[in-house]
């Protein structure tokens, strides 16, 4: 086991050497395939463009989707170099299957915010309003991360939420708010920032809803050097600035 760990360390060190080479350009080329959580769509698209501009000859290809679906695809052998998940649990699924190379690192954190339609027609002020039977409320289903986070928030606030719908993902929740079909919903802060059509309301229990976004290179990566370089780019000052602008906390 020790020998194996040593080998892994050496390989990681080797990769590190490669990626440091990449920063001066030239050593990284080809295609980098990134599987990333749907909530990263806007930021990663921007970061990908930056990365391609900094590394001529490199093409970044994204597959955005639900973190659990992506984890399953990777475990079923989908060709990917990098996995960026919206929840540590999904990263663990891939890690347990021996799918990641090295350790996953947390590159961003997100937290829930109350989203209301523009003008806040129902006069929502805080989590307590989610227990109002007359208000139309949308939440994520408990099976998906934003739903699990919402559950923690309500437990902390001592509120029994009375949702009208439990959506399959956070974008679906956001759509319901944008169309004015619901009076309030809990979505990620980044989701509120991503559209000008909803208003965000912060609430104190949001601290309990923070979730970590881990990123890792994959064991079966065809472009290990590219994977490393892309992860470094995400964690660089430039990357952190783009993430922060989108509403993420960056560690």
């Amino acid at each position: 086991m020790r020998a194996l760990a040593l080998v892994v360390l050496l390989v990681v060190a080797g990769c590190g050497a490669d990626s440091s080479g990449a920063e001066v350009g030239g050593a990284v080329d080809g295609r980098v395939t990134v599987f990333a959580a749907a909530s990263l769509t806007e930021t990663f698209t921007r970061l990908g463009e930056d990365f391609e501009a900094a590394h001529p000859g490199v093409e970044v290809v994204f597959n955005f989707g639900g973190s659990s679906a992506l984890a399953q695809q990777i475990n079923q052998g989908a060709p990917a170099d990098v996995f960026a998940s919206a929840a540590p649990a999904n990263m663990t699924q891939v890690g347990d299957a021996g799918g990641i190379s090295g350790a996953a690192v947390t590159f961003a954190r997100n937290r829930l915010e109350i989203a209301v339609p523009k003008g806040n027609p129902a006069g929502i002020t805080g989590l307590a309003d989610f227990g109002d039977a007359d208000a139309k409320i949308a939440l994520c289903a408990e099976q998906v991360p934003c739903g699990a986070a919402a559950k923690r928030a309500f437990e902390a606030a001592g509120v029994t939420a009375r949702p009208d719908t439990l959506e399959q993902d956070v974008k679906a929740v956001l759509t319901k708010v944008r169309l004015g079909e619901v009076d309030a919903a809990l979505v990620y802060r980044t989701d509120v920032r991503s559209t000008g059509e909803v208003e965000g309301i912060e609430f104190p229990e949001a601290d309990r809803t923070v979730n970590d976004y881990p990123i890792a290179p994959l064991a079966k990566a065809r472009n290990a050097a590219g994977a490393r370089a892309f992860i470094d780019h995400v964690r660089s000052d430039r990357g952190r600035a783009v993430l922060a602008e989108a509403g993420f906390d960056t560690p």
Partner: peptide, 25 residues
């Protein structure tokens, strides 16, 4: 269905919606 009627058990959660959500966990 999930887009127009949403998903709430006993009210709008049909089998395909239940399947999809179960797939998550």
């Amino acid at each position: 269905t999930i887009t127009f009627a949403g998903n709430f058990p006993g009210e709008t959660t049909t089998m395909p919606l239940a399947v999809y959500l179960a797939l998550e966990t």
